[in-house]
């Protein structure tokens, strides 16, 4: 069930030089690896490549497998890779509960069972009774917790974190990072986090630095 990157390199549109030196990496289930590097080296592009959200025009080399399946040939929606984005990306026209229900995996059937699953996720996020709330009324940390729960409800086989904590206040960042890593670890899935924050690296199980 591990996430394996083999000799990955990325070239931006209309560039000839790869963004970073070829990267090989294996992330075990339940393990969190932090990828560090200066801004502009392509950390977010690496996340987009694995998640399937890379804009047109990039050239890629190497392979990415998850639990033995080659990811790069699959469309994003069939990769079972959850992404926690920088801005939580809650859908503004849906209530907090409906945002979570949209994420919740489809094989859990029945209106009651699904509502209970959503309530339970809110409870775990410390947001009991928030189901009917407008996402716009939530604080930054609350939004991030809902976004993480929404991703996890889809039962992903791997989780990617794209500098998701960078915009939070220092205190909140520590708390949010611990919350996220705890929940991801509890699901025994590999997680890859990109960041330029040393504290993120320390909180992860392992750190890798991208270089040209």
């Amino acid at each position: 069930m591990s996430l394996n990157l083999t000799e990955i390199s990325l070239t931006a549109p209309r560039e000839t030089r790869a963004l970073f030196a070829p990267l090989s990496l294996s992330v075990a289930p339940g393990e969190t690896v932090c990828v560090m590097g200066p801004s502009g080296i392509g950390k977010s592009s690496l996340i987009a490549l694995i998640g399937g959200h890379l804009p047109r025009g990039f050239t890629t080399r190497g392979t990415v497998t998850l639990a033995g399946t080659d990811l790069l040939d699959l469309p994003a929606e069939q990769r079972s890779v959850g992404v926690l984005f920088q801005d939580a990306q809650l859908f503004p026209h849906l209530s907090v509960g409906d945002n979570l229900a949209f994420g919740l995996r489809a094989d859990l059937r029945g209106r009651k069972a699904r509502r209970e699953a959503v309530e339970q996720a809110l409870e775990q996020a410390g947001l009991r009774g928030f189901a009917a709330r407008d996402p716009a009324t939530l604080s930054g940390g609350q939004r991030m917790r809902v976004a993480l729960m929404r991703s996890l409800l889809a039962a992903p086989k791997a989780m990617l974190i794209d500098e998701a904590f960078a915009r939070l206040d220092a205190d909140l960042r520590v708390e949010m990072r611990a919350f996220a890593l705890r929940h991801i670890a509890a699901r025994r899935i590999p997680a890859l986090m990109v960041s330029h924050d040393d504290q993120d690296a320390q909180a992860a199980d392992r750190m890798i630095r991208l270089s040209r």
């Binding site: 987009a48 959200h53 804009p55 994003a76 929606e77 990306q89 949209f102 992903p156």
Partner: peptide, 22 residues
């Protein structure tokens, strides 16, 4: 739009579905 599309697809929905539903 691109960010919401990526989010919806990372939750397992096709492009057409994210467009229609979200």
């Amino acid at each position: 739009v691109a960010g919401q599309m990526a989010t919806g697809r990372s939750l397992g929905y096709s492009r057409a579905q994210v467009w229609r539903l979200i």
